[in-house]
Computed example of a mutant assay.
Amino acid sequence: MTQAHLSAPAHAPFSIKGFDLDAFVSATLDEDLGAGLPGGGRDVTSESVIAPEARFSGVMDSRDAITVAGLPIAAAFFRTLDPAMEIEILVAEGAQVSPGTRLMRLAGNARALLTAERSALNTVQHLSGIATMTRSYVEAMAGHATLLDTRKTIPGLRHLEKYATRMGGAQNHRMGLWDAAMIKDNHVLVAGGVGPAVARAREAGVAQIICEVDHLDQIEPAIEAGAHHLLLDNMGPDRLREAVALVAGRVPTEASGGVNLATIGAIAASGVTYVSVGRLTQSAPAADIGLDFTPL
């Protein structure tokens, strides 16, 4: 996102590589509406209480200091149910905002607003929560190393959650099992050692080979066999410094395991290239974001 303000109907397109926004919005709304189930496919509360011609205006705001992510996705829920919905996104994706900041203004069909409200809020609260936690880790690193996310994502939400970590200032690790080899202890066990495991991946023509290293004596065999990136697993800052010295800049190094807000500063300052943190997507609490309506 490069624009701070988007207004319907002429708004900048939003896309995430590998993510189908229309399919996500449709599936999420169908789940909430009970599409395909006996008696499903409708919002019984709004249909029974709200007149079909009623119109609302609404303001989405942050109740906490957060890093924002997901507002264009939230907007898509509302536009799906009311294509004429007037929407103004007031802050850019990745912006750090204070409590009480207005994030989005809306005006349109009241039933559409009420039906889409929970799906839209769930999405922006979850993604902003990830972005907010990510930003706190980036700040704790004090400019040392680069923060990476992991594959510890909710099934079906990987592209969205990894988008949110980018909004928080992290860089994406591999997206899945397909775009890089990550040789871990179980692969090493079956292959008969770090060297043979890496050599097999090289022989198979894998373009990017990440090799987990649990012990310092595994570093040289992994590099000699052709690893492109070493994951230094569960090493404290002192051991990480030793490992970085042994690698001597030949390949990027990544610290992983035992990383939290209290430890990441020292870990990042050890000289590693990257620090990966699974809790960014696995454990981030939802951001406190509200949406209040007013009849028009």
Rank of each mutant, 00 (worst) to 15 (best):
A131T: 11
D149T: 05
H215R: 15
R151T: 04
R250K: 12
A266N: 10
I154M: 14
I209S: 10
D292Q: 13
T123C: 14
D32N: 12
S270A: 15
A69G: 04
R151K: 09
V25G: 06
I264H: 03
P99G: 03
G249H: 05
A112T: 03
D30L: 12
L33N: 04
I289A: 07
A248N: 13
V124G: 04
R202K: 14
A110E: 02
A84N: 13
G108V: 05
I66K: 06
L113E: 08
A74P: 01
V259A: 08
S256N: 08
K152C: 01
N109I: 08
W178S: 14
H215K: 15
G192S: 02
V44Y: 04
M104F: 02
T281A: 05
R200P: 01
A92W: 01
G34Q: 07
E117L: 08
M85S: 00
R200W: 08
A222G: 11
V188S: 08
I89A: 01
T281W: 02
N186F: 07
T101G: 02
L189I: 12
S62T: 10
A227T: 02
V68L: 09
M133H: 12
W178Y: 15
R102G: 12
G18Y: 13
A262Q: 15
T263F: 03
F56S: 00
G39I: 07
W178D: 13
A110W: 02
A10T: 15
V44D: 03
L147Q: 03
R42L: 12
I264D: 01
A199F: 07
S276Q: 07
P9S: 13
G236N: 13
I87G: 02
L240D: 10
G70M: 10
G168S: 11
S270E: 12
E86N: 02
A74C: 03
R111T: 12
C211F: 00
Q208D: 14
V124W: 06
Y163P: 05
A145F: 06
Q96R: 13
F19D: 07
L230E: 06
S276R: 04
R279A: 15
G265T: 03
S48A: 14
V68P: 02
L71C: 10
R105S: 12
R42V: 12
R79D: 05
H5P: 00
R118W: 08
S276H: 05
G195N: 00
V124H: 03
T115Y: 09
R239K: 14
R63L: 10
T281S: 05
V91S: 02
P83H: 09
H5N: 14
H159I: 00
R202H: 09
Y137Q: 07
A120N: 00
L231N: 04
H215C: 09
Q96W: 00
